[in-house]
């Protein structure tokens, strides 16, 4: 039986879709069968970030409404043949998702895949609660910035009350993925530090993704950052996060931390 992960945040634009694609590709490159599912009905973007926008024929809503079979809607990645995408519908709205329909699709996906990674829409409305409903674990994507931290706190509350796990009295595994982190600004005291965010949100850390040009470059070409440039700092951080999700224990490194005077003078490359 596959594991269902929801990638969520409350606030928009913090890196949910980027992280879904990057973690999905990282887990798939370990040889496991992975599907990334776009829950953002009406504003889909996971297809674009994955570089599969021209291959979408059927989508999640079609499958739920019985207009297409699940295998017809799944798009196989061109780079990794054990990585799949289930796109969202672009022409419908979030009411097209029914609770029973989502449950059925999730049950089917769990039979075929090792990992089902759900890219949640922003907000705390129906789309977001449906995306988290069937999750076994949650990755809470947060920027070191006040509004993102506040919204993450709200989402953590929902994960503990509105999910099947919570309703059955089980503990929902929640992990913090800190994105767009700039170690230099944090050191200067102009950005919340990792420990500040951890202390406020009180959930275990799964990874720290540095602010980086490589993320935009990857989305420009339509590839998860872990496939576009596997050696880049954000890709390395996502690979580590994926290994932790899979249960490995690794020391946490803060990307771009060791930059001496030389680095400061000769290039703002680090992250």
């Amino acid at each position: 039986m596959g594991k269902v992960i929801v990638v969520t945040s409350g606030k928009g634009g913090v890196g949910k879709t980027t992280s879904t694609a990057a973690l999905g590709a990282a887990l798939a490159s370990r040889g496991e069968k992975v599907v990334v599912v776009d829950f953002d009905v009406g504003l889909r973007n996971l297809d674009l970030v994955m570089g599969a926008e021209r291959r979408v024929v059927y989508d999640l809503v079609n499958v739920i409404q019985g207009d297409a079979k699940l295998p017809q809607a799944l798009i196989r990645d061109k780079r990794l043949d054990n990585l799949f995408l289930l796109p969202a519908s672009q022409t419908r709205d979030k009411d097209a998702l029914t609770s029973e329909g989502v449950e059925r699709v999730m049950a089917d996906l769990k039979r075929y895949f090792d990992w089902i990674i759900c890219d949640s829409p922003a907000g705390i409305e129906r789309g977001a609660t449906l995306a988290m409903r069937h999750a076994d674990m949650a990755v809470v994507v947060t920027n070191p910035e006040v509004s993102s931290v506040r919204d993450s706190d709200r989402i953590i509350g929902l994960l503990d009350s509105k999910t099947l796990k919570a309703e059955n009295g089980e503990r929902m595994e929640k992990y913090l993925l800190l994105t767009r982190y700039d170690v230099n600004r944090a050191e200067r005291g102009d950005m919340l530090k990792v420990d500040d965010v951890l202390e406020i949100l009180s959930i275990p850390l799964i990874g720290i993704i540095p602010e980086s040009m490589d993320v935009l470059r990857a989305s420009n070409i339509g590839a998860p950052v872990t496939l576009a440039d596997a050696k880049s700092a954000p890709a390395q951080a996502y690979f580590d996060a994926a290994r932790r999700l899979a249960g490995e224990v690794l020391p946490m490194t803060i990307p771009g931390e060791k930059r001496g005077l030389f680095g400061k003078i000769f290039g703002r490359k680090a992250a």
């Binding site: 910035e145 931290v149 506040r150 709200r154 509350g157 944090a186 005291g189 919340l192 500040d196 406020i200």
Partner: peptide, 23 residues
């Protein structure tokens, strides 16, 4: 002056309140 400590403090106060209100 450093701005991160202010962010941290404001969040701690706000969230202590909001967690109470939500529940």
């Amino acid at each position: 002056p450093k701005s991160a400590p202010a962010a941290r403090e404001r969040l701690q106060v706000l969230l202590a309140h909001e967690r109470m209100v939500v529940g």
